Computed example of a mutant assay.
Amino acid sequence: MILKKEVISPKQPYFVMNTSQYYKAVVMNYGISHFYAFRRNRTIDSSIFAIPDGSIDIYFCCDKKNPSAYVCGTVLHPEIAFTGNNQYLFGVRFLPGNCIKSKNASMSDFVSSRVPFLDVMGDKRLFEGIITSRNFENQIKLFMHSYLKSYYDINTIGNRENLNRFLVSNIIQNAGQMKIEELAEKTKYSVRYINKVFVQEFGLTPKSFSKMIRFQNLLSNLNELESGMFDTNLTEITMKIGYYDQSHMIKDFEHFTNTTPSKYMGLLRQTQYNKRLIIV
């Protein structure tokens, strides 16, 4: 079995499990991981949970009577993201460690928070265009047309931003297995300084961010396991992803999901996860 060595795209599997069809358009550029759209499954009454992913989401609830849009940072533990039925939602998920291009906001402002979109972006025209549409491709075009303007306008990069990009890049490329002492050696900065600038920018310590990336890498590998292969490959997955042993992996998984890997695999099969996920 070939294990994925890096997080290709931050995942929120409970978003998929609680919908009848979940549409996903992969970008992997401009700091964006992918766009998604879904309608709540009317047969499922449970709330949709978000789990830690080190990423920022912007989602638009396209409800005719009460439309809304929010910028949401990564959660630190499982939290309710959505409630209610038959809501059509359009969202954009940024790559881990990337933030919306705004002069007045950094990733640390959104950790475990949900901030009204208009308070951050102030683009009422974009808001109204997206919430009145039910066409996924059109919504993507509307968002990118507005987003790229600010993306290219904000192009000044200081030394600290270069450092933060370097730190995030190395953590992700090593799938969360790089120690902060190694980052300090590479950058020639002290461990204390690296912790300080990372927390200021991202609202997380490098260690916490690394744990999220390692967990997302684990999730990515579990999601792609063929039915019945979980027990056979568990030890191999555990060791290659960077956990000390299975007990360590299970403890981390429970912390981030409130369930065990085996129960999670059962949910994937029960909800027919891969059939609900539609890549466009």
Rank of each mutant, 00 (worst) to 15 (best):
F82Y: 13
T83N: 14
N86V: 11
N86L: 15
Y88R: 05
L89S: 00
L89D: 00
F90I: 02
G91V: 09
V92I: 14
V92H: 06
F94V: 01
F94Q: 06
P96D: 03
P96L: 00
I100H: 07
I100G: 03
K103S: 00
S106I: 15
S106C: 14
D109H: 10
V111A: 02
S113I: 01
F117V: 02
D119H: 11
D119F: 10
V120A: 06
V120E: 04
G122Q: 08
D123W: 12
F127K: 03
E128W: 13
G129H: 11
G129S: 10
Q139N: 15
Q139S: 15
K141I: 00
L142V: 02
M144E: 05
M144K: 09
M144G: 03
H145L: 07
S146H: 06
L148R: 05
S150H: 14
Y151W: 15
Y151R: 05
T156P: 02
I157V: 15
I157S: 13
G158F: 09
N159M: 05
R160P: 00
R160E: 10
L163P: 08
N164T: 11
F166Q: 09
L167K: 08
V168I: 15
S169M: 11
I172P: 07
N174P: 04
N174Q: 14
K179C: 12
K179S: 15
E181Q: 09
E182M: 12
L183F: 05
E185K: 14
K186N: 12
K186A: 14
K186G: 11
S190F: 01
V191Y: 10
V191Q: 07
I194N: 01
N195R: 12
N195T: 08
K196A: 13
K196N: 15
Q200M: 11
E201Y: 06
G203Y: 08
G203N: 03
T205K: 05
P206V: 12
K211E: 14
M212H: 09
M212C: 00
M212F: 13
M212R: 08
R214K: 12
F215T: 02
F215I: 04
N217M: 10
L218W: 02
L219F: 08
S220C: 07
N221I: 00
L222G: 02
L222R: 07
L222E: 03
